[in-house]
């Protein structure tokens, strides 16, 4: 089993520029290509412990971040490519790394339907997985990163993938996307945080990704049982609290945060019902990360796992 970090730097660069870096990420193989040094550096920083698939393995997603021609290079632009087509407009090279990560999310958001997919971070303690759906700005990624730095396992920062009629989540561990102030917050929170390239002036502001496979089990592909769903909300001026929420409401909110609940029709409804019936749902209002982690450590479903 060869890890990315085992590739000598020059071989890595050559293979990346030719599109021969197939990485095993959760249940999928992503093949990466880029001719940009910033992107190469980002991949080496954030994915060194990922396994390389073999040259004869099936590739789920062929993605590339390229400056494709003289004009693009002259303008300092690059494009994200999926199946060698550009689904989005070209972006400035300075945003390339963040765009690669978004593009990799987009592949899963749009092109897989074997799971009910929620827009959510997933973390675990022992065998208990916690699903944290969140709107942008709700602080799910910041909390996810902080939990990862305090010994929780990060299963995903973006997708909770639930096989229908189970309460399982399938791990899809990739770097955690941090925005704006969150980047400094996490740097201050732990000196151990490993951050990739900083992309400025993206449509989401300043973006940097944090290495997420910090736990010994990070690359296990076995699904874990979800027992808790938490809807986090960062609020500086409100009292912090972790409070139970109603199931019917949580159902609707989770469906709202799903990429394919509607698409799956009855299957989606039954999958969500099975999940919601069998887990406990909470609202989490927080502004102090240590407080939030303490509150989550204290949950009955989590406590037995420590």
């Amino acid at each position: 089993m060869q890890l990315l970090k085992h590739l000598p730097p020059d071989e890595f660069s050559r293979r990346l520029s030719q599109g021969e870096i197939p990485l095993r990420i959760g249940p999928y193989v992503y093949n990466l290509q880029s001719n940009l040094s910033g992107v190469a550096a980002g991949i080496r920083t954030l994915y060194p412990d990922f396994t390389l698939a073999g040259p004869d393995d099936f590739v789920d997603y062929n993605v590339a971040l390229l400056s494709r021609n003289a004009l693009q290079r002259l303008r300092g632009e690059a494009e994200f490519l999926f199946d060698m087509k550009a689904p989005f407009d070209a972006i400035p090279i300075g945003q390339a790394y963040a765009f690669l990560e978004w593009g990799m999310n987009w592949c899963v958001s749009l092109h897989t339907n074997e799971y009910l997919k929620l827009h959510a971070a997933v973390v675990s303690r022992g065998d208990c997985a916690v699903i944290m759906p969140g709107t942008p700005g709700a602080g799910k990624s910041t909390l996810c990163a902080a939990l990862g730095l305090r010994g929780w396992r990060i299963l995903s920062d973006e997708h909770a993938m639930i096989p229908p009629n189970t309460t399982d989540v399938v791990p899809l561990c990739r770097p955690v996307g941090l925005k704006n102030e969150s980047i400094e917050v996490i740097r201050r929170f732990s000196p151990d945080a490993v951050l990739g390239p900083v992309s400025k002036e993206t449509h989401k502001g300043v973006v940097a990704h944090m290495k997420a496979d910090l736990h010994p089990a990070s690359h296990d592909t076995k699904p874990l049982r979800a027992k808790v769903m938490i809807f986090p909300r960062y609020a500086r001026d409100e009292p912090q609290q972790l409070s139970p929420r109603r199931r019917s409401d949580s159902f609707i909110l989770a469906a709202y945060h799903s990429f394919n609940y509607s698409l799956l029709c009855e299957t989606g409804f039954e999958a969500m019902k099975t999940l919601i019936e069998n887990i406990d749902c909470y609202d989490l209002v927080y502004h102090d990360l240590d407080w939030a982690i303490g509150a989550m450590d204290g949950l009955p479903d989590v406590q037995g796992e420590q």
């Binding site: 109603r246 019917s248 159902f251 469906a255 029709c265 409804f269 019902k273």
Partner: peptide, 23 residues
């Protein structure tokens, strides 16, 4: 359609004609 009733004051209803889900 399909109904999810968790014994709360609201229920979830999936309308299989429109594909919409309602609280």
């Amino acid at each position: 359609g399909r109904l999810y009733d968790a014994n709360e004051s609201t229920v979830v209803y999936f309308d299989s004609y429109s594909g919409d889900t309602h609280l």
